[in-house]
Design a protein around this nucleic acid. Structure first.
Lengths: 218, 218
DNA sequence: TTTCTTATTTATCGAATGACAAATTAATTT
DNA sequence: AAATTAATTTGTCATTCGATAAATAAGAAA
């Protein structure tokens, strides 16, 4: 099939974007690209996806690693919502309700192929941003939850013990791993996220109640 | 510094191993190597670790991918212990006891850096052996557990519902994610694995009891 | 229009990669 | 000891990689 010579304007002109717009576009598409192909994938492959030549990337980022750092920031830092934290501390609602709301909105953000794969790839690379992210989860999510639980059970308002944090991690990790099964392995059975979260939280609350009261006695 | 000419025997002679021994050694060290460096790492890097030249690898494996397949088999297939399954079905013991024993011995096998990293790397590559492994866990571990739970609670012995399997996955995933935090992210708090497992199982059993009885009524 | 700036491409470099062929050397067989 | 077999190394090739320098072209300023 010959290309009909109708439109002489069809010659692909170079698009020129403003520096900042182009840069942001590069980062956004780099997230998709590296999430799918891994960080070891080539800058040429990324350039192809972007529809530009490979050296152009180096006009915007000094090196591949610098670009990757920006990808981390865009995924880990920018998508964290500060309103999650007060939500968990809203004592006008039962804690179980708050937890359900939180984990539904939280997983709305992180349960997508991009986020999950970037998280796993960067974790395997040993980048310290992952460790910092887990500290964030611990301090801003899990420890507040444990304090709220004590308060709701009428127990003294003391900081959470390590083994309690570990217990909260089990619930959090269980929910997280559901996302991995769904988005990385395509192996989730139920697609009813809300229901899965509900059951996970119910078990956590039941288990925590027993655990805290037993500790209170011993 | 000159090398002192004391020992003329010191000249590094080539070691010659039997074909099968060499092959097995290659696979074992390839597990370590790829677990640490990722499957994208070079065959030259592996050869250096092995103390041989890179082309020798091609005497034993037709291609890099073939070697990687053998690594999968060695990790996923060979380390699975068939005795785990009857252990879960031993009705002379309370189910909670059986679960504790099982998860302690199971995690003795999979909670090591090699296993965990190979699992995550291959999962991200989308190799189907991961999906098959998860099916194995579901059919040989989780579904049997759910049947045993029904029996112990005096409920009718019917196959597990999807949402029950999902609930069992939450516990399993919670324990699994504890391993990831410990071995991949160095972020586990408690190193008392036994205790963490105990709490996870207690919450699961408490939650399941409620869940099954409620289902039995509705 | 002409000049100037800068976004983008072309061309290329040196290093690293998977893979193969041929030469070498150790062990086994005769 | 000589001959044969097989394990291992040396040498190399074609690609691909991240990165840089120089050339080109689009848009803004004059």
């Amino acid at each position: 099939m010959k290309q009909p010579e109708i439109a002489p304007d069809e010659t692909p002109k170079r698009k020129r974007l403003s520096s900042t717009a182009r840069r942001q576009d590069f980062i956004n598409q780099a997230i998709e690209f590296f999430a799918e192909e891994g960080f070891e994938s080539s800058t040429r492959g990324l350039a192809k996806k972007l529809g530009v030549t490979q050296p152009l990337l180096y006009r915007y980022f000094p090196s591949k690693d610098d670009l990757i750092s920006e990808v981390y920031d865009a995924v880990y830092v920018n998508r964290w919502q500060p309103e999650w934290e007060p939500l968990l501390r809203d004592r006008t609602r039962p804690l179980a309700d708050r937890l359900n709301t939180f984990y539904n909105v939280y997983t709305d953000v992180i349960f997508n192929r991009e986020w999950m794969r970037i998280y796993l790839f960067s974790g395997l690379k040993g980048v310290d941003i992952n460790r910092r992210y887990m500290q964030l989860v611990r301090q801003r999510i899990l420890e507040p939850i444990l304090i709220e639980a004590r308060v709701e059970l009428g127990l003294p308002d003391v900081p959470a013990k390590d083994c309690e944090v570990e217990f909260a991690w089990i619930m959090h990790g269980g929910i997280f791993y559901y996302g991995i099964r769904d988005l990385i392995y395509d192996s989730a059975i139920s697609t009813d996220k809300k229901r899965v979260i509900e059951d996970a939280i119910a078990a956590f609350m039941a288990g925590l109640k027993i655990k805290l009261k037993r500790e209170g006695q011993g």
